[in-house]
Design a protein around this nucleic acid. Sequence first.
RNA 1: CGGGGCGUAGCGCAGCCUGGUUAGCGUGCCUGCCUUGGGAGCAGGAGGUCGGCGGUUCAAAUCCGCCCGCCCCGACCA
Length: 491
Amino acid sequence: MAEQQNESKVPKEITPRSVDFSQWYVDVVRKAELADYTTMKGCRVIRPYGYALWENMRDALDRRIKDTGHQNAYFPLFVPESLLKKEAAHVEGFAPEVAWVTHGGNEPLEERLAIRPTSEAIICSIYADWVQSWRDLPILINQWANVVRWEKVTRLFLRTTEFLWQEGHTCHRTHEEGIEETLKMLRVYAEYAETELAMPVIVGMKTENEKFPGAETTYCIEALMSDGRALQAGTSHDLGQHFSQMFDITFEDEDQVRKHVWQTSWGVSTRLVGGVIMTHGDENGLILPPRIAPVQVVVVPIFKAANKAEVLAKAQEIGARLKAAGVRVRVDDRDQYSPGWKFNDWEMRGVPLRLEIGPKDIEKQQCVLARRDNREKAFVPLTELEARVPALLAQLQTDLLERARRFRDENTRTVASFDEFRQVIEDKRGFIRAGWNGDPAVELKIKEETKATIRCIPLGDDNRPLPPPEGLKCIYTGEPAKYEVYFARAY
RNA sequence: CGGGGCGUAGCGCAGCCUGGUUAGCGUGCCUGCCUUGGGAGCAGGAGGUCGGCGGUUCAAAUCCGCCCGCCCCGACCA
């Protein structure tokens, strides 16, 4: 039995991460057939394997959104220019990246239509009609949709002209209730990222510079990719009454006073697919967390001409048993590829577990289970499959999260001086926890000098910004720190 | 959008500088035989507007101009 691994024999179709992380990323996305470029700038096609992954990610989040009392709905793709312009900060924030429709057929439109870069404006205009009484509140609606942002620089999944996401848009009677909703969904995102994606996140609040255009406060989850750059993985906004005032969303309260609603919005996107790739992938390609993997177990039959029928039948039988046990399984009965080829192929695609079954195994009533993450192999009696496979998948899921968390913690540093800050950001990257005096100008200075931004002001379990340690100084000015924040270079 | 690099078969590349039969190589793909416990082998075969448009020339993958796309580094962003 080939227990020993011969790394040098593994063909390197994928550029090593250590050589060129960006190229590694593109290679993985394309070779694993997650996505591909199209003839339109910045637009990609999500291929079936990538879309199956997104569907699993989407469904796991959709369950949570519904479990917290929200309903799905669908709003128009177009936003009339006049609506988009209603909230000043909002339009200013999005104007440079809006795609406009100017003609219907051959007729010029009287008013340009924006293709939604986000749906606050169109949804608020509709909510204005829907909300009349305090009894209509809260409105708890989510939308799964595509949005378009005319980005100058695009990267597969991380930043594309068109992307898929969900956007929750809620209305509340009081600010307290709105804040509670904002934080509730923030925590849902954090739990989702860790449980389903095995992606550990920092839960925090954005600074003024980084907050959503039109928001009162923006909260976020921030993840650390394996190249040491941060990824904003999800945001949740307390919109206050900024939009309800501009769009006149009012209700008559129990006290017979007409009031503006308090709103929230929150979203995550297909960008998370990029996050999963860059959190878990290795030199051999993708590593997918079992809970979202399109294929959790691939069965590779190993046969010779003489026993082909018998082995294939056994492989199919095992496949059927695992499927009945609730496992997403694929039996790779392709004739034109050797077992070794299939091993490499499925490793590249990140399938968490491989099950090898050959004549020797059948004789001993066992099979080989090989883990994608650490390449460990184990012989497992066929009678124990229904118990062992789900257990191994669960273990793998836990181990991936643990490994990512260890990486994140090992790459979260504190520094004694701004010189050291500069050095660490340049050489090691990762997160730096450092004091900040709360001045937006200082944040911009630091960004200018190091390309690092404040990813977030971390929140405590009570959802309030964590107070800085006693005596902490601002890393840039030396003044007393208002917060201890996370800095990083980000995607 | 500024600086740099690249675009030739599905993928990876050579050819270009110094223009000249029918544009090559590896891999993949198709057919057959053979093989299958970490990307096997042999034989035959299909597949190209040389990124696009225009120019120079008797002749352009090759020289010139413009445009488009991709990657990296900046500025902007989920």
